[in-house]
Amino acid sequence: MACFLVPGTEAIVTTIIEKAVKAKEKKQIEKSENESSDLQKHGIGFSTKLGWLNKMLWGGSALLAFEHIWHGEVIPTFPFLTAVKEGETLGMLKEMGTAGVGMAIIVTTVWVGMVIVSNALEKRTAGNAEEKTEA
């Protein structure tokens, strides 16, 4: 019906957060121009990691929106959703609350897993580099 709107809304929020984090990281790098900052030391910045989530959410929502157009659930005229036009708003909201929220949760959970693995790998790489320097 309109489940893709939930991850789509999350994508808008995370994109705004990504822009803010990116600006903050840029400032940090500028501040420590000649010194090697934490960001430069450990490689992947948090804004890049947020970018992974954004790409999954925007891409997934776009392809799901296409599927909804295919099935006639999204229409080009107001109110743009067949369920609203046919008075099934409650059913649509229920679907958004179950499938839509489920979609947002599963994508975010997978992303959290990716970030945890990535952080662990970065730590391990940094540890190995330190050991080599000490030796």
Binding site: C3, W52, G59, G60, L64, M103
Partner: peptide, 14 residues
């Protein structure tokens, strides 16, 4: 990759 994986996860929930 991210686009297809995102869509796959969403359709999996569906």
């Amino acid at each position: 990759c991210f686009m297809y994986w995102g869509a796959s996860l969403m359709w999996l929930v569906d």
